[in-house]
């Protein structure tokens, strides 16, 4: 079915652009098709790999060298320790969020999540009856006093030295106490087989991306800890088109905007814009800060105003 529709669109393309380019397109199309057929005929020759930016690729087995994969224990050991000397913080500027949801897509792509599974969720908020509604992206708050890690019976969720709260889905027993304990509803559970289990099944478990996901275990936002190790910004931060997210190191007092790549002082940003944390009265000490939704240059287009699911 898919091949047919792609051929149809290709025909339209041919008419509008011209035969020579079109012919090249067809040729490359056929060659891709041929490669796909060849791969289908010899499935044992290729393996699925997750690239560092979260893309799944197929690689010929002959091209693999034996030293490439790090042993599981080593990945988990360094994943549990965290990145020395860092203290990661996120700042979310609510005055810029217009519900583009690119962060949600990028996150779901990175962490093997279905569209209804959210490590980060853009909520429509309204604080009181007559206050203005706004959009609020809500990742895990990576609390410094995390209620979730406290209640875990097996140390499957834990706080690292760099402030990130992670999950070890090789150890999680699926009791879901952490879901009950989290006041931010930041955690999800793999109720069924996760998305595309076949694609991911040969991957070595990376605790810093929580991929592959496993049935019967917990998952949640990890601040893209695997990307941080390579000095990249988290998936959601990088993918935002509206400059909502800043991410950085509190020890350096510097946060970088994922859209503009501008680096600013964290303390100044928070001070000048009256930054705050969610539900500070709960004593969780979040590492995610919010800048209030003031001076917005766009209309609130959510359906919140006439919905009963107001807060």
């Amino acid at each position: 079915m898919k091949e047919e529709t792609s051929n149809n669109s290709r025909r339209k393309f041919l008419k509008s652009v011209g035969i020579s380019i079109g012919a090249a397109g067809v040729v490359s199309g056929f060659s891709l098709l041929g490669a796909a057929k060849a791969a289908a005929q010899e499935p044992r020759e290729t393996v699925n790999l997750l690239t560092q930016d979260g893309q799944l690729v197929q690689v010929d087995k002959d091209q693999l060298r034996p030293t490439v994969t790090e042993p599981l224990t080593e990945l988990q050991k360094r994943g549990r320790e965290g990145i020395a000397g860092k203290s990661f913080v996120m700042v979310i500027d609510l005055s810029k969020c217009r519900n583009a949801r690119k962060c949600m897509d990028a996150c779901q792509n990175h962490h093997q999540l279905r569209p209804d599974q959210h490590h980060i969720n853009v909520l429509q908020m309204q604080d009181a009856e007559h206050t203005a509604p706004y959009f609020m992206p809500k990742p895990c708050q990576h609390c410094d006093n995390p209620p979730c890690t406290k209640v875990c019976p097996v140390d499957a969720t834990f706080k690292r030295q760099d402030g990130i709260v992670l999950i070890d889905n090789e150890r999680c027993i699926g009791c879901r106490f952490c879901i009950a304990a989290c006041p931010y509803s930041a955690r999800i559970f793999q109720w069924t087989e996760p998305k595309d289990p076949e694609k991911y099944k040969d991957l070595t478990y990376n605790i810093e991306a929580n991929v592959p996901q496993k049935k019967g275990t917990i998952s949640k936002c990890l601040f893209s800890a695997d990307r941080l190790r390579e000095d990249k910004l988290p998936s959601c931060v990088s993918s935002c088109p509206n400059g909502v997210y800043y991410f950085g190191d509190q020890n350096e007092d510097a946060v970088t905007n994922g859209t503009t790549h501008e680096t600013v002082r964290f303390s100044k940003l928070i001070e000048e814009n009256a930054g705050y944390t969610l539900m500070p009265e709960l004593g969780t000490k979040p590492r995610v800060y919010y800048l209030p939704p003031k001076n917005r240059a766009f209309e609130f287009n959510g359906d919140l105003l006439n919905e009963e699911n107001l807060h």
Binding site: V151, P153, V154, R171, C172, I173, F177, T217
Partner: peptide, 26 residues
């Protein structure tokens, strides 16, 4: 029977954290 991974119930013994009320309950 409520656990997502009953096959790992032994983890409560191996990796048990006594800070968790579940350990107290067990």
């Amino acid at each position: 029977m409520d656990m997502g991974r009953p096959d790992r119930v032994i983890n409560v013994m191996i990796h048990g954290r006594f800070q968790s009320p579940i350990l107290w309950d067990v």
